[in-house]
Simulated assay, not measured.
Amino acid sequence: MKKFTIFPLILIVALLVTSFLIFGCGGQQDSAEKKTSPAKKQYISIGTAKVGGTWYPIGAGIAEVLNKNVPGIQATAEETNGAVANVQLINDGKSEVGLTMPSTAFESYTGQGNFKGKKNLLMAWFSIEDVYQTTIVPKGSSINSATDIKGKRVGIGQPGSANFIDGKLWLEASGVSTNDIKMLYMSQSEMSDALKNGQIDVFLWCTGYPSASIQEIALARDMVFLPTSKEAIAEIQKKYPYYSLKSIPPGVYKGLDKELPTMSYRRMVVISEDLDEDTVYKMTKAIFGNINYLGSVHPIFKDLSLNNALDSLSIPLHPGALKYFKEKGVPGLDEFVKRTKEIRSK
Rank of each mutant, 00 (worst) to 15 (best):
I6G: 00
L21M: 10
G26V: 00
Q29M: 12
T36I: 05
A39Y: 01
K40G: 01
T48L: 13
G52N: 07
I62P: 01
I62G: 04
A63M: 08
E64N: 13
E64I: 07
L66E: 03
K68F: 05
V70L: 09
V70G: 09
E79A: 15
G82C: 12
A83E: 11
V84K: 12
V84E: 13
N86Y: 04
N86G: 08
D92L: 11
G93Y: 09
S95W: 02
E96R: 05
G98Y: 10
L99G: 06
T100C: 04
S103C: 03
E107F: 11
S108I: 04
G113E: 08
G117D: 02
G117V: 03
K118W: 03
N120Y: 07
L121S: 00
M123Y: 02
A124H: 08
A124I: 05
W125T: 00
F126H: 15
S127N: 08
V131D: 08
V131C: 04
T134G: 02
T135E: 01
V137T: 11
P138Y: 14
A146M: 15
D148A: 00
K150S: 14
G157V: 14
A162Y: 10
D166Q: 09
G167Q: 12
G167F: 12
E172F: 15
A173H: 12
S174D: 10
G175I: 13
S177P: 13
K182Y: 09
S187V: 09
M191H: 11
A194T: 10
L195V: 15
G198L: 12
I200Q: 14
L204I: 11
L204D: 08
W205T: 03
C206V: 13
G208N: 09
Q215I: 06
M223I: 15
P227L: 13
P227W: 13
I233F: 14
A234I: 04
Y240H: 14
S244I: 12
S247I: 14
I248P: 06
G255Q: 10
G255N: 10
P261K: 10
T279L: 15
T279D: 03
K282D: 05
G289Q: 06
N290R: 08
K302P: 02
S305M: 03
L306R: 07
L306C: 04
N308D: 06
D311K: 01
S312Q: 00
P316F: 10
L317P: 07
H318C: 07
A321W: 11
A321K: 07
F325R: 05
E327R: 09
D334W: 00
V337E: 11
R344A: 10
S345T: 14
